[in-house]
Simulated scan of single mutants.
Amino acid sequence: MIDLHCHLDLYPDPTALVAECVERRVYVLSVTTVPSAFTGTAALAASDSRIRTALGLHPEIAASRSRELPLFERLLPLTRYVGEVGLDGSRDHKATFDAQRSIFADILRMCARAGGKVLSIHSRGATGAVLDALSAEPTAGCSVLHWYVGTGKQVARASEMDCWFSVGPSMLASERGRSAVAAMPRDRVLPETDGPFCSFEGQPARPWDAWSIVPMLASIWGEDDQSVASRMRTNLKALSDIAQALPPAGARRPT
C-alpha cells in the first residue's frame, strides 16, 4: 500500500500510527508544514525504510513562518523530499498570496541549487500559478501535484512538464476531481490521503486508506482492480528511482 501525502506528525498518536504503518508495510511520504517540525517527524520513522519524511513550509502559513526559511535551507541537504509546499489562492489566503509566491520561488531556487528534489505541491485556488512557478525554475526537481484539480488544459500542461500527481479518496468524491484524474497520465498517478485533514469512512484518513482509490481509478480508467494496483506499485518504483538519482541526503551540489 502507498500514501504519497500524509501528515504523520499531526495525528493524535503519531508513534502508534507509524507502528501500524510498519506492520502493514505501507509506503508513506510524510510531509511537514514547517521546517521546525522536520527533525522530530523524521525521528518517528527513522527505522523504517518505507517511510520518507519531506521538508515543508505549507502555503497557508508560509507568510507567518517565513522566518523559518533559513532553517529550511539548512535542513534541505538532509532529505531528497520536499513538501508540503506550494501556493494557496483560496479566499481565506488571498491576502498573503504575493508573499506565498515569493516564498515558493525561494524554495524552488533552493531545491534547484541542491540538485533537485521530489516535491509534494499544494495548489488549491492556484492551479495555474503553481505551474507558472515550476516553469520558471525547471531544475527544482520532480514535482508531484497533490490533490490537483486543474482544468483539462492545465492537467495537460502539467503532464507536458513531467509533473506527477497524488490522488486521494476525498478528491475522487467530486466530479471535478474525477475529471482531472481522467486526464492525468496513468503512469504518473499515485495514492494519497492528506490525513488527518481528510476523512475516510467517518474518521481521519489513515495511510492505508489511500489504497481505497484503486477500485475508484479502475472505474474511471476502465481497468480491473488488479491492473490498477500493479500500476500503482510500478509508478512508486519509477518515482523512487527518480529520487534515488538525485543528490543523496547529506550531500550538497558543488557551487
Rank of each mutant, 00 (worst) to 15 (best):
A114C: 08
A114G: 15
A114D: 14
G115E: 10
G115S: 10
G115V: 12
G116P: 07
G116C: 05
K117D: 12
L119H: 10
L119C: 13
H122E: 14
S123C: 15
R124G: 13
R124T: 13
R124M: 15
G125Q: 06
G125R: 04
G128E: 10
D132N: 10
D132Q: 07
A133K: 00
L134W: 03
L134T: 06
L134E: 07
A136H: 05
A136K: 03
A136D: 14
E137C: 13
E137V: 12
P138Q: 04
T139V: 06
T139Y: 11
T139Q: 12
A140F: 04
A140D: 11
A140E: 08
G141M: 09
G141E: 12
C142E: 08
V144E: 05
L145V: 08
L145E: 07
W147K: 07
Y148Q: 14
Y148A: 15
V149F: 03
G150W: 09
G150I: 07
G150E: 13
T151M: 09
G152Y: 01
K153C: 08
K153T: 14
Q154L: 12
V155G: 06
V155E: 12
V155I: 14
A156P: 08
R157C: 08
R157M: 10
A158L: 06
S159P: 15
E160S: 15
E160L: 14
E160M: 13
E160F: 06
M161K: 09
D162Y: 02
D162N: 07
D162T: 00
C163E: 04
C163V: 03
W164N: 06
F165P: 13
F165H: 09
S166L: 03
G168D: 09
G168R: 10
G168T: 02
P169C: 09
P169V: 02
P169F: 00
S170N: 01
S170V: 03
S170R: 02
M171Y: 02
L172P: 02
L172G: 03
L172A: 03
A173S: 09
S174M: 05
S174C: 05
E175A: 14
E175C: 01
E175P: 07
E175M: 10
R176G: 15
G177W: 05
R178Y: 00
R178G: 04
R178K: 12
S179N: 11
A180R: 11
A180W: 05
A180L: 11
A183V: 00
A183P: 01
M184C: 15
P185V: 02
D187A: 11
R188L: 04
V189T: 08
V189F: 01
V189W: 00
P191Y: 01
P191H: 10
T193R: 00
T193Y: 01
T193S: 09
T193M: 04
D194V: 00
G195Q: 07
G195I: 02
G195T: 03
G195C: 01
P196N: 03
F197Y: 13
F197V: 03
S199M: 11
F200P: 09
F200Q: 12
E201H: 10
E201Y: 01
G202Y: 07
Q203Y: 06
Q203I: 08
P204F: 03
A205C: 04
A205Y: 00
A205L: 07
R206A: 08
P207V: 05
W208Q: 05
D209V: 06
D209S: 11
D209F: 01
W211A: 12
S212R: 10
S212M: 04
I213V: 12
I213R: 00
P215W: 10
P215M: 11
P215N: 14
P215V: 13
M216S: 15
M216P: 13
